[in-house]
Design a protein around this nucleic acid. Structure first.
Length: 221
DNA sequence: CTCCCGATAT
DNA sequence: ATATCAGGAG
């Protein structure tokens, strides 16, 4: 197994920059794949997206947001009603409880609005760093940190940018390796690449991969 | 670390 | 049957 060792921080930075440039060339257009009409809706959609495809989340939220579009609506919805609406996303009891409690907190402490800092978002029920960074980046355009999800973890691991699987360590590493203005789009590109080519579930389509030059796995079955 | 959990590709 | 899907809480 090939282990790339990058002695200096500047060398690691240059390598990450080249990977980021290649990803940008391959995936020039990026967009958030979760549908939402407000920061609150993106927050709820992202909570629902845990261990679930965004396609299914969009399918569920279309109905959910038609009936309960605001934090006030979701703070007062009956739990069984909410559970029924989101059941197909999995973990539905936890997600329903978290969404309701989260929206109750938003109504009580933030006038039903979504706060714009990591420190205010992360304590909310069902909201971790990944969800907080998604909302800040995609709803407010605030780059508070690289979004580290299952795709970013896998892609950056395979391409030899980070060695650990610890999400917090990966985020800190990527935050120092990449310029802030690239943080949001870099995650989107890892996700696109992870879905289309460098998948976990199916066998990776290495024959179609344009990132082979960066991949220690090339040639490995 | 385990648990939460339905839907889907393989 | 099994692995995996824009994770988070205890």
């Amino acid at each position: 197994m090939v282990v790339r060792t990058r002695e200096t921080k500047s060398e690691a930075k240059r390598y990450a920059a080249r990977v980021a440039r290649a990803l940008t060339a391959e995936y020039p257009v990026v967009h958030c794949s979760l549908r939402f009409d407000s920061p609150l809706q993106l927050l709820v959609a992202t909570i629902l997206s845990a261990q679930c495809t965004d396609e299914r989340v969009n399918q569920v939220t279309e109905q959910l947001f038609a009936q309960y579009p605001t934090a006030e609506d979701l703070a007062t919805v009956r739990l069984p009603t909410l559970e029924k609406l989101i059941r197909s996303t999995g973990f539905f009891r936890n997600k329903a409880k978290n969404i309701k409690a989260c929206c109750q907190t938003l109504v009580e402490q933030y006038d039903g609005q979504v706060p714009r800092t990591l420190d205010e978002l992360v304590p909310l029920p069902g909201v971790g760093r990944k969800t907080a960074n998604v909302v800040l980046g995609n709803a407010f355009g605030i780059a508070s940190g690289v979004v580290v999800d299952t795709h970013v973890t896998r892609i950056c691991g395979r391409l030899g940018i980070v060695a650990t699987k610890d999400a917090v360590k990966i985020e800190k590493k990527l935050n120092e390796l990449l310029p802030r203005k690239e943080w949001i789009d870099f995650s989107h590109r890892c996700i696109q690449h992870g879905r289309r080519i460098c998948s976990a579930r199916t066998k990776p389509r290495c024959d179609e991969c344009r990132m082979q030059g960066f991949c220690p796995r090339v040639g490995v079955s």
